[in-house]
């Protein structure tokens, strides 16, 4: 009874709380990232901007034009056409459209791709000034986005 009263008068609960706050005030506990200057390192498996990989040796696209990614996508946002190569009689990708504005980065297309051509990369800066800019064509998919790097 008296104890509770004294606890009350001397604001014990307040000081208990303050102790916790002060314990967390050390500069080494700063978690904030200074984003444009300090760029976060995203995980290796991060599912970000899509990319069409090229064969590192020949520079040819790895895509074999099978259309599986378009079929796997729940949002049906990949539209690709393929043509048959006259010489090798193999299908090759002709055009490739990827609507990033509707993509939810679920990774199903990447999983469906048999030739590891389509990959969701670690680029996470996808903002554009226009809606149309969100629809990426083959060139953009192969080169990847080029976000502005700010120095601050």
């Amino acid at each position: 009874m008296i104890r509770a009263f004294l606890k009350r008068v001397f604001l014990v609960d307040l000081f208990e709380g303050l102790r916790v706050t002060f314990r967390n005030q050390k500069p080494k506990y700063i978690y904030t990232e200074q984003y444009p200057a300090q760029r976060p390192k995203v995980a290796e498996r991060y599912r970000g901007a899509p990319r069409l990989n090229l064969n590192p040796e020949t520079g040819e696209p790895l895509c074999i034009g099978c259309n599986l990614c378009a079929l796997a996508c729940p949002e049906s946002l990949i539209v690709m056409t393929s043509i048959r190569d006259e010489k090798t009689k193999r299908k090759t990708m002709n055009t490739f459209l990827f609507d990033t504005s509707r993509c939810m980065f679920c990774g199903l297309c990447e999983e469906a791709c048999p030739s590891d051509a389509l990959e969701l990369t670690q680029d996470f800066e996808l903002a554009t000034y226009t809606r149309e800019g969100q629809i990426w064509d083959r060139k953009m998919m192969e080169e990847g986005p080029k976000p502005t790097r700010y120095k601050c």
């Binding site: 995203v42 290796e44 498996r45 939810m104 980065f105 969701l120």
Partner: peptide
């Protein structure tokens, strides 16, 4: 994020 590449969804 390390496990599956996304944080929220």
């Amino acid at each position: 994020e390390n496990y599956c590449g996304a944080r929220l969804t």
